[in-house]
Amino acid sequence: MSVGLEHFLVLGAVLFAIGIYLALTKRNAVAVLMGIELMFNAVNVTFVAFSRFVESASPLTGHVFVVFIITVAAAEAAVALALAVLVYRNRETINIDEINLLKW
């Protein structure tokens, strides 16, 4: 049986779900960031799947969007990790449960 658009969309959805679960449940800030990266990838898969299967005037716009997503994700990862290191330096921990005091 052939592999259609739905297969890739389901794959993207599953990856997105795993990413959200990771982001919501993990205690370590770096693990949360890994979840976010996974979500970005899920979105990328969906974009590319659409640009491959769906009829459109310029099919490769999906790819251009994925390029933008990759750059933004890289920038976001850098800043988020810098924040994590800074939080670690001030609070000696990056365990999200403990970073809940607003009196910074």
Binding site: K26, R27, V30, A84, V85, Y88, T93
Partner: peptide, 18 residues
Amino acid sequence: IIFAIMLTPRAARDNAET
């Protein structure tokens, strides 16, 4: 990510749930 993990040595390196 690895550099971030390296720069936070004493932080909990386990992957536990909140």
